[in-house]
Design a protein around this nucleic acid. Structure first.
Lengths: 320, 320
DNA sequence: TCAAAAGTGTTCGTTTTACACCCATGT
DNA sequence: ACATGGGTGTAAAACGAACACTTTTGA
């Protein structure tokens, strides 16, 4: 990528984007032909059906190649004079992926180690967003070699116990980019990042950390009494969906399994939920009892800023 | 203040410190003679007894004077080549206040509006800490004219209902630098900063916002099941204290009133609390029934990094 | 005897978690 | 019939908020 050499570019202030997307394995298989764009190769299994959470990656800059052993990077760019970091991240979302500016973007971290980039001192600010897969798909591949790296799916969650020699319940969220353990008496949350894990580093430089922290932030959309669709500004499930699909969406984003009955009751508390039963429509396309279909009461629109940036600071809505 | 003109200073990356301290009004009166250092003047009332939460301020830079109408600023400085922002904030804490590096510092915000500083484009990163009043006191005044600005105290909390025409329970935390309303059905948290309030701006530029967001972060030490002393790394209450003092400390920091019985029961849940009854010692120095005295089981030490940076991500400790 | 502040008991409604059971479909 | 997944009833446990009452001091 060639950066135009206009003088208003702050080349020591990078903005990196952690763009999440959720897609059903079979949709991914049928719509993405170049399997080199999807990593790792086992990420999509033709036999099983399920949702996967991915993050968008690009090749590392040429000048970095000698330092990164072929590992990929996160899309990004540099701050300009007349922008805030947030507007820079919006511009970069358009520039690098051709995505509409109506996407809800949130700040998630500062990466400022003097040695983090072996070429020069630069601070990196990460912004994250959840994006509809259809929007991402159009940009995949191309000269930019835009690709997807798996963050989490049901298969990975099933692997966790043998991979880390701990049951899934011991974790307060797991994904390929790291995890936290549930606190025990006397011990607070303990986190593990890819550099400490047997599975090893995934992306170049400190991009793994960027993904992990952004994932932790994104995760908050699901762990409280928030409406994740409104919070993320996107609905990857389509017009009508099964509750079990909504549950798998939550599980993959949270990196936790949720009890079926608890999940249903939580979203069923209509006074704080955006999900409503679609009268009289069922889906029998899969084994078992046909499932009721649901839809969103208020369809999402990306640009609603009535929600605060930090979900951790929202108390649950009181009952009516 | 003269900044040495060595070339490794990043003069477009500022670090500002929001240094909180809690002090009893009568201690403040007896130990600080220059009342110009304390703002506003009604902050300390010789008649009433109580705790106040302050933030440390300094005069705005000379070059800014024409823009700020005499308003004061937060201590700060610039990032250097070989530092992270966090180590810069530690250095600045020593340089500007002579404070020991053992103080627990946390990041809280990025201020990046292109116009935020009328003199030049600069990004500001804020770091906050809670500091023992004795440490702050030694630096007050002097050539630097280091002073204190009131953030919250019982008197201000009592004023809130008539000031904002709303009962205190409608707020999810109030202080002089802003507030949030409790969410109502259909409406999420709504915040008000000083620029929107009848009470008006307090400090120069966007320093009010820095204090507000840092205060919101500091507040988290109190609203969950965290041990605030361990989280803040400081104990402003001394060796032995009444539970009612611990309660006032919490109320002033939270910007909320807490029911006496609820507060006592919460800290009384010893398996998750650091507070223990001091056998056989009572304090009769105030009207009413003499109070039992308590102390911390594990005295605080500033440099314990077993606690994560973000309290919102801590789940309560399970019971033993 | 009263005000003031400390300290405790008890209730009630909500939330969380777990377990169990029934239901409707395809094979 | 049975495997598969959808959907609901119920109950224990934990938690939070509210209220009322008792205790011990000084004035």
């Amino acid at each position: 990528m060639i950066i135009p050499m206009t003088s208003d570019i702050h080349s020591d202030k990078a903005v990196n984007l952690v763009i999440f997307t959720v897609v059903e394995d079979q949709v991914l298989m049928s719509k993405v032909w170049d399997e080199d764009l999807i990593s790792p190769h086992w990420a999509v299994d033709p036999k099983s059906r399920g949702l996967s959470l991915f993050v968008v990656t690009v090749p590392a800059d040429d000048e970095l190649q000698s330092h990164v052993q072929g590992r990929r990077a996160l899309p990004g760019g540099y701050l300009r004079d007349n922008e805030t970091l947030k507007s820079a991240s919006q511009r970069l979302l358009i520039e690098s992926l051709g995505l509409s500016p109506k996407i809800r973007i949130r700040q998630s971290g500062i990466f400022d180690e003097p040695e983090r980039n072996p070429l020069r001192r630069e601070l990196a600010f990460t912004y994250w967003a959840m994006v509809d897969f259809e929007s991402v798909r159009k940009s995949l591949g191309g000269r930019e070699r835009i690709g997807l790296e798996l963050v989490n799916n049901a298969a990975f969650l099933d692997l966790v116990p043998e991979l880390f020699d701990k049951p899934l319940e011991d974790f307060d969220g797991v994904c390929r980019f790291g995890n936290r353990l549930m606190p025990k008496p006397g011990v607070y949350h303990k986190k593990s990042m890819t550099k400490d894990l047997p599975t090893g580093k995934i992306l170049a430089l400190d991009y793994d950390d960027m993904v992990f922290y952004a994932w932790r932030a994104m995760r908050h959309a699901f762990d409280g009494k928030l409406d994740p669709f409104r919070y993320l500004g996107v609905n990857p499930l389509g017009e009508a969906f099964r509750l079990s699909d909504a549950q798998e969406f939550s599980e993959v984003c949270l990196g936790e399994k949720i009890d079926r009955d608890q999940f249903r009751r939580r979203v069923g508390a209509i006074d704080r939920s955006n999900i409503r039963l679609l009268q009289g429509s069922v889906d029998s396309s899969r084994p078992g009892k046909p499932a009721n279909l649901y839809s969103l009461v208020t369809p999402v629109d990306g640009e609603d800023d009535s929600l605060p940036d930090d979900p951790t600071r929202i108390r649950p809505l009181p009952r009516t």
